[in-house]
Amino acid sequence: MRLPWFSRDTLVSWDGADGKNESYVEKLHPREVWMSPDGDKGWLIEAGERAGGEGGITLDDPGDLEPSLNGPSYDYLRTLPTDPGLLLKKIYDETGGMGSGPDQQAFSTIGDLLREQVVPPKLAAGLYRAAARIPGVVLVDDSVDAVGRHGVAIARTDEVDGARTEWIFDRETYTYLGERTVQTRDAEGIEAGTVRGRTAVTDRAVVDAVKQRPAGLGDAPPSA
């Protein structure tokens, strides 16, 4: 089993009683995800009510889902090309017609590949370089994740909703550190300048079973 440990806050939106969209950003809180290398077994624990309370919820695959670019497993990631040109071509070919446009979808897909999986180092570097080739993507020399670590980032603004997302990497190893999303214009009740979300991957480890934590992180709560 592979365990990514996150800290994150995200924007929560809903329709208020007056029909207007209302929103707030959650406080930074821990999130733990266990996934087997083949993606068939998994578990999620996240603070509060988001993931079934203290005990968490299963992420087991019912058997009819194959790993994909938008739902990868570690074994699947190992099959992807690490050359940035080939990698980007595959992403465009397989995600065409999705999302708010091919370029934004390609950028979002790279985030899906990075966010909750242990990524082989050569692939992580390939994803960073592939994302830099997407039209509208800019390089950010210094960005800060949710726990204050500095790194380099690739960023793109979604033309539809105005959200600017940064994928943040260690500047030496290209290890994925986290993400930061900021609203660039007033839209859907969200004011420009609002930080819509921040994350930091604070630990990644290989363990023997679901809900087992590495030494030093304490015991996970019993299964629900």
Score class of each variant (00 low, 15 high):
183 Q>C: 06
5 W>R: 09
128 Y>D: 02
180 R>H: 12
137 V>G: 08
26 E>M: 07
121 P>L: 12
35 M>S: 08
111 G>N: 06
13 S>W: 02
56 G>R: 02
40 D>A: 15
121 P>C: 07
168 I>N: 08
43 W>V: 10
23 S>L: 04
195 V>R: 03
220 A>E: 00
218 G>Y: 03
180 R>W: 05
73 S>M: 08
31 R>P: 00
189 G>H: 00
153 A>D: 06
182 V>P: 02
171 R>V: 07
139 L>G: 14
137 V>M: 12
156 R>G: 05
187 A>E: 10
18 D>H: 01
129 R>M: 10
96 G>Q: 12
221 P>K: 01
178 G>R: 04
74 Y>C: 00
124 A>N: 03
3 L>R: 08
152 V>I: 15
217 L>Y: 10
208 D>Y: 03
192 A>F: 07
219 D>F: 00
94 E>G: 02
99 G>R: 09
6 F>W: 11
38 D>I: 06
75 D>Q: 14
209 A>C: 03
44 L>C: 15
107 F>W: 12
135 P>A: 04
38 D>R: 05
75 D>N: 12
63 G>S: 13
160 V>E: 14
11 L>W: 00
21 N>R: 15
140 V>W: 11
17 A>V: 09
121 P>M: 10
26 E>T: 15
23 S>Y: 11
24 Y>K: 14
183 Q>W: 02
5 W>M: 11
191 E>F: 01
64 D>Y: 13
138 V>C: 02
211 K>N: 06
212 Q>M: 13
26 E>I: 02
213 R>E: 02
134 I>Q: 06
142 D>E: 15
16 G>S: 06
97 G>S: 09
189 G>P: 01
125 A>W: 03
53 G>K: 06
17 A>L: 13
133 R>D: 14
42 G>V: 03
61 D>T: 09
196 R>W: 01
34 W>G: 09
198 R>I: 00
31 R>V: 07
27 K>N: 08
166 E>M: 13
59 L>N: 05
124 A>L: 06
48 G>C: 05
34 W>F: 13
200 A>W: 03
2 R>K: 11
81 P>N: 03
145 D>Y: 02
22 E>M: 10
7 S>T: 06
145 D>G: 07
136 G>M: 12
208 D>M: 05
206 V>H: 08
90 K>A: 07
116 E>F: 13
111 G>E: 09
177 L>E: 00
201 V>Q: 14
38 D>M: 06
198 R>C: 07
47 A>E: 15
156 R>V: 01
157 T>C: 07
173 T>F: 13
137 V>P: 08
1 M>D: 10
84 P>C: 03
77 L>H: 04
25 V>H: 01
70 N>M: 07
30 P>W: 01
167 W>L: 15
22 E>G: 01
158 D>R: 10
145 D>R: 03
117 Q>V: 02
162 G>C: 06
21 N>H: 11
182 V>E: 04
33 V>E: 11
1 M>I: 12
183 Q>S: 08
107 F>Q: 02
173 T>I: 10
8 R>I: 01
183 Q>I: 06
169 F>Q: 04
195 V>E: 13
166 E>F: 09
70 N>P: 00
98 M>P: 00
80 L>M: 06
149 R>F: 05
167 W>M: 13
96 G>A: 12
33 V>I: 15
161 D>R: 08
152 V>K: 15
166 E>Y: 07
101 G>T: 05
26 E>D: 11
142 D>H: 13
45 I>V: 15
